[in-house]
Design a protein around this nucleic acid. Structure first.
Length: 414
RNA sequence: GGGGAGGUUCCCGAGUGGCCAAAGGGGGCAGACUGUAAAUCUGUUGGCUAUGCCUUCGAAGGUUCGAAUCCUUCUCUCCCCA
């Protein structure tokens, strides 16, 4: 017999805390459960940091349950103080609506929205029209300030100062759960562990409004961290976005390809759909062999987000770039820029070339790169900052640039 | 409303008239070592048409031969009192 959705989550490490695991288990065995997790539309694209709840919902959907992705169009106008040291930047309504729209498409990679098997709603739809007096009277009355202040997330913020608008966030998120419970029969809210307080509040609100028999359960995921302590899904340049325009599939692939050894198994479980047995095998690899697991992780992840074709391209491109043999492999996915043959005829300074491709942010940086021996043209190290690249460097209609050990860039001559 | 403390380069944080493109740390980048890992060590870390020039110490003015440093106004943040 197939594993239950909950079992899948357990064995993959998705579960941090649950308000009532036994109740959730029997509920899920008994019926199709409608569940939800919130997604913040604070940017125009989802990024890797958003993915844990989405993958969790995927597994539960596969087990026959119905996920609702709630875009926080309303709540993101307030800003959740949980786990944040500073107040979040407030966005305008227009920004948030625009973000919500583009996020919706991306969700389709992970959740199946056909035939309403999953839903996406925007909490602005019910939070927007709220009447302050009514809300206070109907919802606010159920909240104890004393209790709210006792929550860890607020305690920390009290040290630094907590704005009233943020203090209200919990009420709104609780109201979300109540609303979804009433309108969609939603019985489970999931979220990162920093959401625990908000989730519990929502459950309490439902019980108070709907009576103590009302079924509402909360489940949190561990906060996924990287072995080096950095934030998941962040690079120096910013978040690892799912939007191919903002973060190319090749770079996306490379991000996953370069995860730390210690993270591979964890990430395979969280961020791929591979069977747990297969992951165990990959995880058991040692030494240099572990690179196979990383490659698999990168491939599977890229396939889910950008599709099989892009994943293949990225894999081929990576092989072409990094393998010693090289060959005529497909390099298409490596980022490239076009350059006119005539310009090349005249010769381009090495620093200009690197700066132009974006491999270096400025010519000063390019100068440093060259001086430190990190610049390569067609795998040949260039150490002279006055070197000029001319048309003789063109091979197969392009020039391959390399900055440092990992960053490749193609200059396509046209 | 009253009083106090502050806003410095990617971040934290020194700097209180010239020696300041600004200590130190973190982070980043590069090199060595490797496995497109981690750790470690070394170098580097505003821009440029480059022994010089330009932009940067919350903003705008001012004093001065010379200002991140002094003065004025503005602005934002935090704390205390009301």
């Amino acid at each position: 017999m197939a594993k239950s959705g909950l079992e899948v989550l357990k064995e993959r490490g998705f579960i941090q805390q649950c308000t009532d695991m036994d109740a959730l288990e029997s509920l899920m065995n008994k019926e199709q459960v409608t569940l939800y997790a919130g997604v913040d539309p604070t940017g125009p694209s989802l990024h890797v940091g958003h993915m844990v709840p989405l993958f969790a919902m995927h597994h539960l959907q596969k087990a026959g349950h119905r996920p609702i992705a709630v875009v926080g169009g309303g709540t993101s106008m307030i800003g959740d103080p949980s786990g944040k040291s500073d107040m979040r930047k407030m966005l305008t309504l227009e920004q948030i609506q625009a973000n919500s729209a583009s996020i919706k498409d991306q969700l389709g990679c992970i959740l199946d929205f056909t035939d309403d098997k999953a839903l996406m709603v925007n909490n602005y739809d019910w939070l927007g029209p709220l009447n302050y007096i009514e809300f206070l009277r109907d919802i606010g009355i159920h909240f104890s300030v004393n209790r709210m202040l006792s929550f860890e997330s607020y305690k920390q913020r009290l040290e630094r100062g907590l704005n009233f608008i943020e203090f209200n966030y919990q009420l709104l998120q609780s109201y979300d759960f109540l609303k979804l419970h009433q309108d969609y029969g939603c019985k489970l809210q999931m979220g990162g562990d920093d959401q625990w307080g908000n989730i519990v509040s929502g459950i309490e609100l439902i019980r108070r409004v709907e009576g103590s028999e009302a079924q509402a359960i909360g489940l949190t995921f561990p906060l996924v961290t990287r072995a080096d302590g950095k934030k998941m899904g962040k690079t120096e340049k910013g978040a690892v976005f799912l939007d191919p325009e903002m973060f190319s599939p090749y770079e996306f692939f490379q991000y996953w390809r370069n995860v730390a050894d210690a993270d591979v198994g964890k990430f395979l479980k969280f961020f791929t759909f591979l069977e747990i047995e297969e992951i165990a095998e990959l995880e058991a690899l040692e030494g240099a062999e572990i690179n196979k697991a990383k490659e698999r992780l990168a491939y599977e992840q890229t396939k889910i987000i950008h599709g099989e074709e892009e994943a293949n391209k990225a894999l081929e491109a990576a092989k072409a770039a990094f393998s010693v043999v090289g060959g005529a492999a497909d390099k298409d996915a490596i980022p490239s820029v076009e350059i006119a043959a005539a310009d090349l005829e005249a010769g381009i300074g090495i620093m200009d070339l690197f700066a132009k491709t974006g491999l270096c942010a400025s010519k000063g940086e390019a100068r440093r790169l060259v001086q430190q021996g990190g610049a390569r043209v067609n795998e040949e190290q260039i150490k002279d900052i006055n070197a000029v690249v001319g048309s003789d460097a063109v091979k197969d209609g392009e020039i391959m640039l390399k900055a440092g050990k990992k960053r490749y860039f193609r200059v396509v001559v046209k």
